[in-house]
């Protein structure tokens, strides 16, 4: 439990050193990133952003954590996110400009299905041929990015967009708009979905046979096999769930905060979610907290960018460092540090 907190603190120190090297005041930079979004005078504007940025991270990380626990490494969530967004937006644009209550739920299903099917590619290849799911799921991210480019230039392009790439803006299509549930709170349907996912994951892992099998497979694969756990079923379930959740995250993003399918629609949530999953100790509640923290660094990073002229890549490095220190500090849970004089054994 203590390691993630310690990792965050160590990263803050190391980050401060990094910022000092970049010629930025380190203490102020850390304060701008971690304090200002929550408690500065403009915090009313930033706090809703916390939900907007945190929701996709939590939603994706919850899905990933199931697989990571069982030793199933889906690192292609970014691709599943893109495909989910494309299929969700595709459903909406297919019905445009029809006004009906069922369009948005259908989009959610479409997004989940898109991500699910995209994740089924590595899952089925793993089950059928034993192909490495790490590499396949990652390769599919690049394929998804190409599809995204093709869609925003072709099939989904806004016919009234004066030839610019990108789809119609779904924010201006009420039936498809993932609007805020409470105005000004940042709370859109994706946030609700993320919270539901946390609860379901918690129940699954603690109260359900399947959750037990996931944990067993991760901790003692041989014992799991003797206990009759079907590895193939777990691969399909973990990758499928992760894909569906990532696809939903993409769909909520495209129909809400982002609004449209465009070439640079994806911003790396699928990869940052990997950090979130580990930082949250692969535990649903932990992931919720880690997602909030990571969202904070995104927002704080943006503030630091405009206030201090901090390069956006600095935040990326910061997030990478966090995972580094977390993994390194894990040693403390495996071993106990003891100061001892070096003598003859």
């Amino acid at each position: 439990m203590a390691t993630p907190v310690l990792a965050v603190l160590v990263t803050m120190v190391a980050g401060g050193i990094l910022f000092a090297f970049l010629g930025k005041p380190p203490i102020e930079a850390i304060r701008v990133i971690f304090w200002d979004p929550l408690f500065s005078e403009f915090a009313f504007y930033y706090r809703p952003q916390l939900l907007v940025k945190g929701a996709p991270l939590v939603l994706i990380a919850i899905g990933l954590s199931l697989g990571f626990r069982a030793g199933i490494w889906n690192i292609g969530a970014e691709g599943q996110y893109i495909i989910g967004a494309l299929s969700g937006a595709g459903v909406a644009l297919a019905f445009y400009p029809l006004d009906a209550w069922w369009i948005f739920p259908l989009m959610v299903l479409g997004g989940a299905l898109g991500g699910f099917l995209w994740a089924m590619i590595p899952a089925l290849l793993k089950v059928k041929f034993g192909t490495n799911e790490i590499l396949v799921s990652l390769m599919l991210v690049y394929v998804a990015e190409k599809i995204l480019a093709s869609m925003s230039l072709g099939l989904l392009k806004n016919p009234e967009g004066y030839g610019f790439p990108g789809s119609r803006n779904l924010q201006q299509y009420p039936s498809a708009h993932n609007a805020e549930i409470f105005t000004g709170s940042g709370m859109h349907w994706g946030v609700a979905a993320a919270l539901i996912a946390v609860i379901f994951a918690y129940i699954l892992l603690n109260r359900h046979m399947l959750g037990f099998q996931i944990r067993l497979t991760g901790e003692a694969p041989r014992a799991a096999r003797f206990a009759g756990v079907s590895p193939a079923r777990l691969v399909l379930f973990c990758l499928g769930t992760a894909g569906a959740l990532a696809g939903m995250a993409g769909m909520f993003e495209v129909s809400g905060p982002s609004g449209q399918v465009s070439i640079d629609f994806n911003v790396g949530y699928g990869f940052t979610a990997i950090i979130v999953a580990f930082l949250g100790r692969l535990h649903p509640i932990g992931i919720l907290l880690a997602g909030a923290l990571m969202a904070l660094t995104y927002i704080g990073g943006e503030i630091a960018q405009s206030k201090l002229g901090m390069p956006s890549a600095a935040i990326q490095v910061f997030q990478g460092m966090l995972l580094f220190f977390l993994l390194a500090l894990d040693m403390l849970t495996h071993f106990r540090l003891r100061l001892a004089a070096k003598g003859v054994a």
Partner: peptide, 14 residues
């Protein structure tokens, strides 16, 4: 390994 890739991508951009 994943953290190395994420870190390296950020560092190189910086």
């Amino acid at each position: 390994g994943l953290s190395l890739t994420l870190f390296g991508l950020g560092l190189s951009a910086l």
